[in-house]
Design a protein around this nucleic acid. Structure first.
Lengths: 222, 222
DNA sequence: GTCAAATCGAACTGATTGGTTCGATTCTTT
DNA sequence: AAAGAATCGAACCAATCAGTTCGATTTGAC
């Protein structure tokens, strides 16, 4: 029953198609699963619904994915990876911390407030008690990587004398949390149905940077 | 929702007990439900398990609560109310903002990192997509009330000239989020199994206040 | 002690779900 | 065109679960 998780090789030795190895179909299934899982959560999402949403027969579903949990994990990993890529692109290593952080903050908040991203967060958090490994892996490969990225950037700025930070690891998370103040929590609880406007994001991020620089900016010699 | 401290069983006109009206039994059921719901989430929690955990027959369960969802909502409301009470007590209206905020921050973070509180958060967030009303009500009567409380306190400090804040509503949330930096998120994702130590909380809250005062503290005449 | 009501407990119902099976159909390669 | 594999689709299975039923048992007021 072991099937190669990699869908790179499309043909077998005799150049035949291989069951469950068409990357297009795999993507198609994951897209359907994304809709159903994010709309209903892990438990309430039925494999029948997913098959229908993906325009795929139930049998094929089980050719591509061992069971519901494996499908779910594969989906979450795909989304998390996409998010991580986005974050890495967002930090242009500008030598001016205000510009760099401002740019990064806005990209990050914009990404996190995307409809599916919020839903994915909800689902992973909701299932974290029963599936601690998934929760931990999602956190450590996602959010934790983002803050590490920023922490390293802050380290450089400190080395260059542009910022004065004792604990850059903490400062990074503080910055990320400040950027999401008033934006993320109500969305997680579904208390606000639509993503914040671009201007609202801009306003919150600006305030975050104001605060960050007030604390960690180097004082001009007086 | 005022219930007498001592168990006064409701009686009918002829002084008979009334079905589903014993507050002790009700509490007993909710306690069992708390364990099961927080350990498994809404969907994976079975009414059989809850009845067993509460030492109550399944029939009695349905005498006290209409169905699974009503039981869940009642439980969440009880927990949320308890949390709100805790928050209100935590803010001693000290006239020194550093002392007041420090005290409040530590109480808040301590409360939020309690095992059941974290689990409750997870469950509510996880179910918010399918039960938006519950999510919204939990948020608006819980976290939102907490930040309103702080915002009002900040308003007073501003009026007294002890702080300089343009948007106290935003500042309140910023403060709350700073207090939870590095503490709450990994716990929500279950990436850290145990609550942070008292010293760790103290360290984070201290850093939060440092930052908050750097931004909003009144500058001494320069 | 009596008696009525609350509770127990254990079986039962009806619906749903994850996962399987298998013959019919559609691709794809030669 | 022919073959062989992937896919479809629809029925099927076993387990689980919310919610009900009902006689047996406990409880508490009198």
């Amino acid at each position: 029953m072991t099937e190669s998780p990699e869908a790179i090789v499309k043909k077998d030795a005799r150049n035949r198609r291989v069951a469950g190895a068409d990357p297009d179909k795999r993507r198609q299934i994951l897209d359907g699963a994304l809709h159903v899982f994010t709309a209903r959560g892990f438990d309430a999402a039925s494999m029948n619904d997913i098959a229908a949403a993906a325009n795929v027969s139930k049998g094929t579903l089980y050719v591509y994915f061992e069971d519901k949990e494996h499908l779910f994990v594969a989906l979450i990993e795909r989304e998390r990876e996409a998010q991580k890529r986005g974050a890495f692109e967002a930090l242009n290593h500008d030598s001016d911390p205000v510009r760099a952080l401002s740019n990064f903050g806005q990209c990050l908040v914009g990404m996190l407030n995307n409809e599916f991203a919020v839903s994915a967060h909800r689902v992973v958090i909701g299932v974290a008690e029963r599936m601690p490994d998934l929760g931990r892996s999602f956190y450590e490969n996602g959010p934790a990587q983002g803050s590490k990225l920023i922490a390293r950037y802050l380290d450089r700025m400190v080395a260059e004398g542009k910022l004065a930070i004792d604990d850059t690891r903490l400062a990074a998370v503080q910055f990320i949390d400040l950027c999401q103040a008033t934006l993320m929590r109500p969305r997680l609880f579904n208390a606000i149905r639509s993503a914040p406007s671009e201007e609202e994001i801009q306003r919150i991020v600006a305030s975050a940077i104001e605060m960050f620089m007030a604390r960690y900016g180097v004082k001009p010699t007086r």
